[in-house]
Simulated scan of single mutants.
Amino acid sequence: MQSTQPAFFKQGPKPLTRLLIFSALSFVLIVGDARFAMLGRVREQVSILLYPLQWLATAPFSAVRTTNDFFTKQTQLLAENRELHDAQLAAQAQAMQLTALEEENRHLRQLTATQASQPQATQLVEILYNGRDPFSAKLIVDRGDKQGVRSGQVAIDAKGVVGQVVRVQPLTSEVRLISDRNHMVPVEVARNQLRTVVYGMGRAQPLEIHNLAPNADIEPGDILRTSGIDGLYPAGLPVAKVIKVDRQATSFARIICVPLAEIDQHRFLLLLEPPAARPPYPAEAPASAPVAKKRGR
């Protein structure tokens, strides 16, 4: 009776034999794949089967890399956005400064043209600040006694009369605006030479003409200019424009005007030289006593 050995004790090829077989098989596969591309299709199929495992293995690293890239780009975008915003603000500030310089340059050209058109000498002054008294309309300019400014000089801009110098310090001067309550300017209507006086009503308030008869020949739109009869304001300077005439208010017409000068819009003014003192009138010669004729004897 033939004895059977349990399968558990069966032995296959020896390890050395297996090594030789698999080495030879590997060599054949390497040579065949290198020379004849025998395993190309097999490699493609295997890569398709292994792709999910490869994706699962690399997914955490890809997620970390993507998250880092997202936050890095987010930080870069925020920094670029901040830089662009700062550059925009700087450009806007430069544009506003350029606009202000262009406006100031235009005003200075107008003052230069006005200066050339004046028969008397003028002096360019810069406004430093408004007067501190809230109940008056005054300006402080940067020229004073040392620069030849004198009390009584008329201040004008390119459009008309601004005011008059009322106080002179060594380095600064005080200009009372025509809108001040204590200021009055003798004027005439340019259309018909009707003489009157225009009064200030306060800072940022219109001007008024008082004590003019209701039937006076003055209409809205009339231009008022200095009459020159006071000896302080040279004749012919534009002062104001009539905007309203109320002939029914009281026994006198109520006439509202607005200054032609752009009082609160610029930094520079022109000061006119004060008019020269008029020579005194010559005294009249006393009448000579009549000479008595001698009667002949």
Rank of each mutant, 00 (worst) to 15 (best):
G160N: 02
A249L: 11
T172W: 06
F135S: 14
A155N: 10
T196F: 11
Q153N: 13
G144E: 08
L108W: 01
P206E: 01
V42A: 04
R203F: 04
R143F: 04
V189F: 03
Q153L: 11
N130W: 02
H266C: 00
A249I: 13
D69M: 06
D246I: 07
G296T: 09
D246M: 05
P279F: 03
Q5H: 13
G296I: 03
H107Q: 02
A287W: 05
D86V: 07
A87G: 05
I140R: 01
P259K: 02
L111I: 11
A90S: 06
E208R: 13
D86G: 07
R225N: 03
R167S: 06
R176Q: 12
I229E: 15
Q74A: 06
A158E: 02
Q74L: 09
P259E: 08
F71K: 03
V189Q: 05
S26M: 14
L53Y: 05
R106Q: 10
R278P: 03
K294E: 13
A37R: 11
A57I: 05
L16Q: 13
I255P: 00
R132M: 08
L269D: 00
D133S: 14
A190L: 10
E273T: 15
H183Q: 11
Q88G: 05
E102Y: 01
P119Y: 06
S62Q: 15
I21G: 04
P220I: 11
S23G: 09
A289N: 12
D86K: 08
N211L: 15
A216M: 08
G40H: 11
Q76H: 14
S23H: 09
D33N: 06
Q205L: 10
T196V: 14
R143P: 00
A213I: 08
V149Q: 00
R82I: 06
Q88T: 10
V187A: 08
T250I: 12
T122N: 02
A240P: 00
P290C: 12
A91Q: 10
D33P: 12
N68H: 09
Q5D: 10
G231R: 09
A285S: 13
S3N: 02
M38N: 09
L77W: 10
D222Y: 05
T99I: 10
T17C: 08
R65G: 09
I256C: 04
S251I: 11
G148R: 13
P134E: 02
R191K: 15
G12L: 12
S23T: 09
Q5F: 12
Q92P: 02
D222A: 14
T66L: 06
R106P: 00
E174A: 13
A63M: 10
R82K: 12
A90Y: 07
D217T: 03
E284Y: 09
I209L: 10
I30Y: 14
E262S: 08
T250W: 00
H85E: 12
S173Y: 05
S173A: 15
D142T: 04
T4K: 06
A7Q: 01
Q147M: 15
R43V: 14
I256T: 14
Q120K: 14
